[in-house]
Amino acid sequence: MEDHHLQLALSSLITLSFFLTILPPSYCIDNARFVECSIPFDGGRIKNISYSFLGGNRSELCNFQEFKLTCRDNEYPIIRIEELEFLVLNINQSQYIMTIARLDLWNHALQSIHDLFKGCNTSIEVPILRTALIDESVGLQNVLNQGFDVDYRNDWSITCSGCEASGGICGFNSFSHSFVCFCHDGEQPLVCSSNGMHARFSSIS
Rank of each mutant, 00 (worst) to 15 (best):
E2H: 07
L10Y: 11
S12A: 12
T15N: 07
L16S: 06
F19Q: 06
P25S: 07
P25H: 05
S26A: 07
C28W: 04
R33C: 01
E36Q: 14
I39F: 09
D42E: 12
G44L: 07
K47P: 08
K47Y: 07
K47R: 13
I49K: 01
S50W: 06
S52M: 01
F53V: 04
L54D: 08
L54C: 05
L54M: 01
G55R: 06
G55L: 00
G56P: 10
N57G: 09
R58Y: 02
E60N: 04
L61P: 00
C62L: 05
N63W: 02
N63D: 07
F64C: 06
E66M: 06
F67Q: 05
L69D: 02
C71E: 11
E75K: 08
Y76Q: 02
P77M: 00
R80Y: 04
I81R: 10
E82Q: 14
L84H: 07
E85I: 01
V88M: 05
I91S: 06
N92M: 00
R102C: 03
L105A: 08
L105H: 04
A109V: 01
A109Y: 05
L110G: 12
Q111S: 14
S112C: 11
F117N: 14
C120V: 12
N121G: 12
V126G: 06
P127D: 12
P127L: 05
I128S: 03
L129G: 07
L129W: 02
T131N: 11
A132I: 10
A132H: 09
I134R: 14
L140W: 10
N142R: 12
V143R: 15
L144C: 10
L144W: 03
G147V: 01
D149Y: 01
D149L: 03
R153E: 13
N154M: 03
N154F: 11
D155Y: 13
S157K: 11
I158W: 12
S161M: 14
G162P: 02
C163N: 14
S166Y: 02
S166A: 10
G168S: 03
C170D: 03
C170F: 12
S174F: 07
S174V: 11
F175N: 13
S176P: 00
C181W: 04
F182E: 11
C183E: 08
H184T: 04
D185C: 05
E187I: 07
E187G: 08
E187A: 07
P189M: 08
N195V: 04
M197Y: 03
A199E: 02
A199H: 01
R200S: 12
F201W: 11
F201Y: 08
